[in-house]
Simulated assay, not measured.
Amino acid sequence: MKTSNPVLSRLGQAAERERAAGYGPAGQPGYGQPGYGQPAYGEPYPTATGYPASPPAVEPMTIDDVVVKTVTLLGITGISAVAAWNLIPDALTSAAWIGAALVGLVLGLVISFMRVANPALVVTYAVVEGVFVGMVSKFFAVIAGFQGIILQAVVATFGVFFLMAVLYRARLIRATPKFTRGLIAVMGGLFAVMLINLVLALFGVETGLRDNGALGYIFSLVCIVVASLSFILSFNEIEEGVRMGLPRRYSWTAAFGILVSLIWLYIEILRLLSFLQGDD
């Protein structure tokens, strides 16, 4: 299981450990750990009737699994966003926005660096991010008064998503090792800049990075481009994960990656649209 993607490398190692413990794909008796009641490599599993049987099996993930999990997470995020919009008072919008962003950041980092898939954590992340998305959307649409901005941002976000899917399918953009390393480095740099800017803003220091000005326009456009390209990494991880035969539950991890990119892209498009409407 050789791959240049660090995420896939970790997941591939986890899958190998599971197979070594006797949890390989169904019908492949070559997997299993000798000893502790397990047969040696290549030997069939004995049964009470004396007939050979396959070892304990874990179903490999498929693209359909990822699609179902992604739609599920999007539905949870949407429900959470609507609930937050209606239940959290306008006066608490900013506090809820910042709180959900910080909790979501911690959960996102935990999920990203874990070596095993955890559906409960991924679902919790979707709920928290739903609160974040709902509060940001409410701020721009209700408090700031930008009419129709949410629908425009949603349409633009999914439009970009499907465009990137087409480009990846046609192999017009490929997740080469150089592309992957470069994009991951740029994403890390952007998140570091945004985190520093957030901390400075909390202490009353304005950098203009998120304001309606030349710097704000440039930074938002850069974020939109990078968030769009991050789908290529997700599509490649899904494709490689299916090829490598990762266990089915890792489809939650793949869906998590798509959800992160969709939310990031939506927020950046929402912000850019607010700049454009503010200039009218």
Rank of each mutant, 00 (worst) to 15 (best):
S9G: 05
P29K: 07
L167K: 01
L8M: 12
L259A: 00
P29S: 06
L151E: 10
L198V: 06
G104Q: 11
F231Y: 15
G208W: 11
I263F: 04
F231H: 14
L105F: 13
A53Y: 03
S4L: 05
L73T: 01
A95K: 15
V68W: 15
G24A: 09
Y36E: 12
V205C: 02
Q38K: 09
R10V: 00
G216A: 10
F203V: 01
A254Q: 12
A156M: 01
T3I: 04
M135C: 14
N86A: 08
I111N: 05
R248K: 14
L262W: 03
S261W: 07
A120V: 08
L87V: 03
S54K: 02
P247H: 02
S228G: 13
G257Y: 00
K138E: 04
L167F: 06
T72Y: 14
L183V: 13
S251F: 05
A227P: 08
V133R: 02
M135T: 12
V66T: 11
F231E: 13
A170M: 04
L229V: 04
A175W: 04
I63A: 12
R10D: 00
K2C: 01
A153L: 02
N212S: 07
G189N: 06
V142P: 03
I149T: 11
G30P: 05
L229T: 05
L246D: 03
V133E: 07
S274R: 03
I269N: 10
V127P: 02
S220N: 15
G35T: 13
L215S: 13
L259S: 02
E59S: 09
L172S: 08
A117F: 09
A117K: 04
I258Y: 05
S234Q: 08
V128W: 09
I258F: 09
L183N: 05
F256V: 03
L229W: 05
F113H: 10
Y31P: 00
V160M: 11
A21L: 14
